[in-house]
């Protein structure tokens, strides 16, 4: 029994159907619980109540990057092992990742306005996320532009591969170009930079919530893609017969 068995559409549908309710329930519980807990945390001595947007901002930003990495892995699996479900999962993940990036950018702007006095700064982190958003848009646009799903899966796979290298390169180029205003990593392991436990634990909970939300959305979207492909396949077979 190998893990690749689940690349079979039928097995994937059965397994994902079983997981889906738990993912949805877990996402709702963690998100609601984490956000209420986060809302009840005391105000920060420097940032006041604005600090609470961290419970949306940080998980969204984390997922924005992780989803791209997941797409890269799925694309590699498709290009190397030719598992069709993998290509569809990459396709299904892209819009979720784009929205996560947008949430990170929007909450960042709302947070940045009272803190830095400006909605937008060409800070390395903000700029990197904007660039990541551009890569997501390009990937989604290429998928939707090509009609033949086999070509589309291959071409977007290559784009994801090359895009990942250049997204990473852009990240370092941007750091070189402008040192920024943004605070250090929120969950840095270095002592002193770490945020206090009062904020940290609800943040962990919302991060888990965002992750489960992604899993749930990804499963729903991949299942939809599989059904759509099955419909197209049946129509193609009928047209030929």
């Amino acid at each position: 029994m190998s893990i690749w068995e689940y690349a079979n559409p039928v097995k994937f549908m059965r397994l994902s159907g079983a997981i889906l309710p738990f993912a949805v329930a877990g996402a709702v519980i963690c998100m609601v619980g984490g956000l209420i807990w986060g809302f009840l945390t005391p105000e920060d001595y420097k940032q006041g109540s604005t600090v609470k947007i961290v419970f949306l901002h940080v998980p969204a930003a984390m997922m924005a990057i992780n989803i791209w990495v997941m797409m890269l892995v799925a694309s590699l699996i498709w290009l190397i092992r030719r598992h069709h479900v993998s290509a569809l999962a990459a396709k299904a993940a892209a819009p979720i990742g784009a929205v996560m990036t947008l949430i990170a950018l929007a909450t960042g702007a709302i947070w940045g306005q009272p803190m830095w006095g400006s909605w937008w700064e060409w800070d390395p982190r903000l700029t990197s996320f904007l660039i990541l958003f551009l890569f997501y848009i390009g990937y989604i646009a290429l998928w939707s532009a090509i009609e033949d799903p086999d070509s589309a899966a291959d071409l977007t796979g290559w784009l994801c591969l090359v895009g990942s290298v250049f997204a990473l390169l852009s990240r370092y180029a941007v750091l070189f170009w402008n040192q920024g205003l943004h605070q250090g990593a929120s969950l840095s392991v270095a002592p002193g930079e770490r945020m206090s436990a009062v904020y940290r634990y609800p943040l962990y909970l919302t991060m888990l919530g965002f992750f489960l939300l992604f899993v749930a959305l990804l499963l729903i979207r991949t299942r939809t893609e599989i059904r759509r492909r099955r419909l197209a396949a049946l129509q193609a077979r009928e047209a030929r017969a």
Partner: peptide, 16 residues
């Protein structure tokens, strides 16, 4: 579409 795909790849070259 091509400009949408290519221009982000140009960012590092532009910066440096």
């Amino acid at each position: 579409l091509m400009s949408l795909l290519v221009l982000p790849l140009y960012i590092p070259t532009l910066i440096f």
